[in-house]
Design a binder for these strands. Sequence first.
DNA 1: TATGAATGAGGGTTCATTCAT
DNA 2: TATGAATGAACCCTCATTCAT
Lengths: 211, 211, 211, 211
Amino acid sequence: MNQAVQGREGVELAPNRYREILEIAARMICEKGYEGASIQQIAQACGLTKAGLYYHIQSKEHLLVEIMHYGMDLFEERVLSQVESIPDPLERLRTAMAKNVLMVTSDRTKEITIILHEHATLTGDELDRINTRKKRYVRFLERSFSEAIATGQIRRVDPKVATFAFLGAVNWIYKWFQPDGHISEEQLVRGMQDVFFGGLEPRSSAKPEGS
Amino acid sequence: MNQAVQGREGVELAPNRYREILEIAARMICEKGYEGASIQQIAQACGLTKAGLYYHIQSKEHLLVEIMHYGMDLFEERVLSQVESIPDPLERLRTAMAKNVLMVTSDRTKEITIILHEHATLTGDELDRINTRKKRYVRFLERSFSEAIATGQIRRVDPKVATFAFLGAVNWIYKWFQPDGHISEEQLVRGMQDVFFGGLEPRSSAKPEGS
Amino acid sequence: MNQAVQGREGVELAPNRYREILEIAARMICEKGYEGASIQQIAQACGLTKAGLYYHIQSKEHLLVEIMHYGMDLFEERVLSQVESIPDPLERLRTAMAKNVLMVTSDRTKEITIILHEHATLTGDELDRINTRKKRYVRFLERSFSEAIATGQIRRVDPKVATFAFLGAVNWIYKWFQPDGHISEEQLVRGMQDVFFGGLEPRSSAKPEGS
Amino acid sequence: MNQAVQGREGVELAPNRYREILEIAARMICEKGYEGASIQQIAQACGLTKAGLYYHIQSKEHLLVEIMHYGMDLFEERVLSQVESIPDPLERLRTAMAKNVLMVTSDRTKEITIILHEHATLTGDELDRINTRKKRYVRFLERSFSEAIATGQIRRVDPKVATFAFLGAVNWIYKWFQPDGHISEEQLVRGMQDVFFGGLEPRSSAKPEGS
DNA sequence: TATGAATGAGGGTTCATTCAT
DNA sequence: TATGAATGAACCCTCATTCAT
């Protein structure tokens, strides 16, 4: 489902062209929303006519599904699978946050990531499939928070609330962060880590405040 | 356009119907997004025909503007103005978070609050006006974080990043929180406060962990 | 039909108010065309709401009928009946032209007169009734041209063609004439008379050209 | 917008369909007026659905603009450019009148010619552009009248008034002329020429009346 | 007399989608 | 692979009109 690059059944496309379409479409949908971005505009941005675009995609809805799965592929490849095996739970969370933040700020991945959280357009099975993939990350975070509490690395907080606070803070970034503004990506990552894991450390491990 | 109550300017004769329309429309727009919610659907939800709805509103875009200003009115009334005068910065932030969370979970206000963050729909002056009002809250939070750091009540974190982490975490709530789920509103408020202000307290002031 | 001033059956209105409405409506319809002028705009121009206007009129179409008959009343009163009894056919035509031109340039009557020649909105009986009234003027002109030819006052031209040339020239005036432009009303009347009745005079009666 | 032939700018690949649409639309607009003719009706008359028509046109207003420019193209091609170079001013005017009359009576061109005088619909630049083209003809007529007066071929009349009398008489034709009525096209042309240039001739040059 | 509130029909326009070529 | 031409459905919005008050 999520690796076979295919516009329609049986037709094997040059995967690059298809991915390019997904990324361009993602950019448009990200800018204007799913309903706000028309097939006409997407096609034009791809240098195609509407009918030409339809050679590559099955439908607008399916296009969204594909973008979302592509986004999840990217996310799992660059975030989840990079951090899952980190043994120390606190370090695991800090690294996940860093990589997750970069997904939302980095140029090629940000649009695709943002769309993952677009208002519900999908329904039924497709929605379920995407949500199942998303939940894997949620569970991973919850588990990691629980572990970090168990090891005493962070204070006792509700792991579920902490998880969604984490997700909210990170996914909200695109609404205010300006790539060339006062805050750099590094500062952003550091800042977020500070707020969450500076803060969640047990009292004695905070860096000496005055020094 | 041709009725007595036009948003915040009009005579206060029968504002109930208009407010009701704003709230119903907010609910639909919140569910489906601005582009996804059709005037037809909004009208139907109001028990009106399209033309009947248009007796009350000027245009779909103006409707959004009105909802947003109504949302800001509610927000300023129930959050900002309730906490601005709290002298202690940490208590001020904790209270702001509590009241803000309740706006997002409470039935009548949640959609209206959320729509405030519909983006890329408004343009020009209207966008500016709304953004100016939003910025007041952002500045208030930034200022409060800075003060709380200055007083040593919370650790040194970037106030801007902290502010947006706060906003992201709180506004994200509507995506996952279920009013009759495992977590109660009180637990949610507590949890969020814990994550942010348990966590942001300087090392020595953390409540004894075991007790 | 055309003198009883009545908005709807049996209701006797202050005729002034009703006439005022007809004149205001005529002005709007003249400016924007029948389809282009909305009941809303007409009502507003009358200082009424839509529903208020409907107390006075039966329907938009009937309003047009009334305006047209009012226009025909005015026209017959100020043009036809003033000239019909002039014995000399050439003087009769010259005077008709003068009075007709003034109807099209004069402030209170121009809109009403112009509408008389609006693109066909009316159909059936109503159209027939108006056309019957219009035809009276056409016949009058044709007859007068024929007489003037018979008396030798003007050269032999097709009376029907001359009549419609006359009507076209006069009714076209509103498309180009500016009340405060280079040409005065008097010059306009003189000019039109010159073109038609200077020109149509038999060769020997033209004023000595060189003097 | 997305077809090859866009008015007078596009490639000349298959302009027939487009021109056909312009002509059909012109017929409808001429019959019912611009506001009175709906896109739905125009589309149907073209054998298309509304959306199908919109593949060919940009908007209703632009359609009108295109019709008008097409009309001006035809007019300049068949009238202005055919007579401009005629040296004798009186013959020039008589020929212009003949050709102009035929534009208004001839089946394929009449509606397009008439619409040129739809007023109060266009605004701004487009209106200016059309008016500039129209003025060329008006100036041509004025100049020709002046010349004919100067050469003594016609009596002294105000050239501007004469011009608009000419235009009014000619453009009014479509309101009354019936192609298969009592008057033939040739009689019409002759009649109009007689009224204007029989009539405007100086007294001595009139053809012997009795012969 | 007049109005506030409402409506069904229709306005122009754009949508995602199809299909012969 | 791609397109030109087309479509039905839906879009936002305005229309003339009505009716209880």
